[in-house]
């Protein structure tokens, strides 16, 4: 037997397959090439087809409508109250809640005399003051509330206001005792079932609950406050005003949508 291949052997060897593509190796090699920096890192390309564009537009419209609906539902289309003013709301909530008595109750209260109403209102006023948030029961907090009630913010209102405006302002402003008492009267003369809506077990929870109540209440964008400046009336449009006291005297805070204006009151 020679070393040379026979024709059959040559044919058999020549018929052996020369090519075979390994399954799944391409992805592995491409990844290895990428890891070695020979190929660019994978980039995801999003092709914008007609259907995708339509979907994006529909999603955008739904988002805008949803946001608008939420805004209408939560804010009633009114402006947002600055945080500082919200803090003040929390402190005054118990008194303000009395102002939210439904109009039907107010009509009922009209039928009683002032004395009867005042006597009936005393417990409600006391309860309202008891429910002031703990943090506002500090000396400074108490003083703020008392001052704001007693002083009626330095000067009386000079322009006439509608009944709605007045009620809304009561929601945001400290009121003189007469107003608080009148509100308390209305609450006191309201049916017992309605009064039970108010009680909260803990002061903190009560504060949070009151804040939520305020969010749902109708809001006034701006109100006019008139002060006497050296005998000259000065009218300011603001969300609310408040008087605080520090070691150097009293400070008038005027809350506007653009910020807070602080005026130190002289001559105290």
């Amino acid at each position: 037997m020679t070393d040379e291949l026979t024709p059959e052997e040559k044919e058999a060897l020549g018929n052996l397959p020369r090519e075979r593509m390994p399954v799944g190796l391409e992805a592995r090699v491409v990844e290895a090439m990428r890891e070695h920096g020979f190929l660019e890192k994978r980039r995801r390309t999003i092709v914008l087809t007609g259907g995708r564009v339509a979907g994006l537009v529909a999603a955008s419209v739904a988002l805008v409508i949803g946001a608008y609906s939420i805004g209408l539902h939560r804010g009633g289309g009114e402006t947002v109250v600055p945080p500082a003013a919200k803090l003040m709301e929390a402190e005054r909530a118990p008194v303000d809640r009395a102002a939210k008595t439904p109009p039907a109750r107010e009509e009922k209260a009209e039928g009683i005399t002032d004395n009867e109403a005042r006597e009936a209102a005393e417990p409600a006023v006391a309860e309202a003051e008891q429910q002031v948030a703990p943090e506002s029961r500090t000396e400074a907090g108490k003083k703020d509330i008392l001052e704001s009630r007693e002083e009626k913010l330095a000067a009386p209102r000079t322009r006439p206001v509608s009944e709605d405006e007045a009620r809304a302002e009561q929601t945001w402003q400290a009121r003189p005792d007469e107003e608080a008492r009148a509100q308390a009267q209305r609450e006191a003369t309201a049916p017992p079932a309605a009064k039970t809506l108010a009680p909260e077990p803990a002061a903190k929870d009560a504060g949070r609950s009151r804040m939520m109540t305020f969010d749902a209440a109708p809001r006034v964008k701006k109100q006019s406050f008139t002060f006497l400046l050296n005998g000259t009336p000065l009218t300011v449009e603001a969300d609310s005003v408040r008087v605080n006291e520090d070691e150097r005297g009293r400070i008038l805070h005027i809350y506007t949508p653009d910020g807070v204006i602080r005026l130190r009151l002289a001559g105290d």
């Binding site: 020369r18 075979r20 391409e26 491409v30």
Partner: peptide, 15 residues
């Protein structure tokens, strides 16, 4: 381009 090269030469190389 690499995939084209790979598909062109790998079957024979692998075998």
């Amino acid at each position: 381009a690499f995939r084209a090269l790979y598909r062109r030469h790998t079957p024979r190389l692998f075998m």
